[in-house]
Computed example of a mutant assay.
Amino acid sequence: MEVMYLGLAIPAAVAIFVVSRALYLIIQIISSNCHLEKHASLRTMLCIGSGGHTTEMLRISKKLDLHKYQDRLYIVADNDTSSEIRVHKSIEKGTNYAISKIPRSRNVRQSYITSVFSTLYATLHTVPVVYTFKPDVIFCNGPGTCIPICIVAFMLRCMFLLDCRIVFVESICRVRTLSLSGKILQYFADVMVVQWPSLRDVCPRAKYFGRLT
């Protein structure tokens, strides 16, 4: 009987610790500014969507100091061949980058109910990718592909297995409301950036620097 209670007590204690740690980080993220250690370089993960999201993220990527943000890992959906080609042709010509494919968490016109299961499926495939690469910073701008990546990175941070910061740049097409990804990540992203001043009323903690893409 004592062994059974001990077997239940340990998972319960771990769960309580993880939840407490998650709440602590969320409060810290919402109430303070993002700080990164002053490393000579930052292992960087960039979440590439499709279509307009790909265009915007590639424009952001072109403005990065590639000597500062290396090594770089681009995340694309496993059925998105065009974005992979665009990464190779429009930005990267060196060797300090790689591309990793994960299942798409939500397809166009997919119902929100079924997307819950596809997101869980994508999240399971994302765990080894994030844990192995161990990014210092993640850049994303709204595609569903970024949700599993950011969730996994946040959970690993909760368990002291990763020290990563998330930078979310809302898409230029979002003028008055946040995207679904933005509504979710406003509680997990260390830096929220919007490209329209009207969105600061929707998300007061968001930063506005003008049009970035």
Rank of each mutant, 00 (worst) to 15 (best):
R104S: 06
D163K: 10
V18T: 09
P204T: 08
L124K: 10
C203N: 05
I172N: 05
Y74P: 00
L58Y: 07
V3T: 14
H35G: 06
I30T: 14
Q195C: 08
Q28A: 10
V87H: 00
V127P: 05
L161E: 10
I85R: 06
Q186P: 07
V130G: 06
L42Q: 03
T44H: 01
K101A: 14
E37M: 08
G49E: 00
I27P: 04
L120K: 06
K62L: 12
I172T: 12
S179D: 12
T114N: 13
L46P: 00
I99Y: 00
N33W: 07
G7I: 14
S115Y: 04
S105I: 06
P197L: 04
Y121T: 10
E37H: 06
T132H: 14
T81N: 11
H125K: 15
R86N: 04
Y5V: 15
C158V: 03
I102S: 02
V137Y: 05
S50F: 09
I26F: 02
V137R: 02
C146S: 08
L6N: 14
H35F: 13
S115N: 07
F209T: 08
F133C: 09
M192I: 15
I16V: 14
C140I: 13
C158E: 01
L66K: 15
Y112M: 10
P135T: 03
T177F: 07
Y112G: 09
R211T: 15
I30F: 06
L73P: 01
L25T: 06
E92D: 11
T145V: 14
M4Y: 12
A22N: 05
N33F: 11
Y97K: 01
V127Y: 14
V108E: 02
F117R: 08
L178G: 06
K207F: 11
Y112H: 11
L161S: 04
T95E: 14
Y74L: 01
L46G: 01
A13H: 05
Y5L: 15
A9Y: 03
C150M: 08
V175L: 08
Y24R: 12
V14D: 02
C158D: 03
R174M: 11
F188W: 10
K134F: 10
I48G: 00
C146N: 01
L199C: 04
T81C: 07
L180F: 12
I85F: 07
C150K: 02
K62Q: 14
C203V: 15
F117I: 11
I172M: 12
V3E: 14
H53V: 04
V116R: 01
C158T: 06
A189D: 02
T213H: 08
M155Y: 04
C47N: 00
R59P: 02
E2F: 10
S41Q: 09
S181Y: 05
K134W: 11
I102P: 01
H67K: 12
V202K: 00
Y208V: 07
T126M: 13
M4V: 15
V108G: 01
I102A: 03
I149G: 02
A77V: 02
Q195K: 02
I16P: 01
I113G: 05
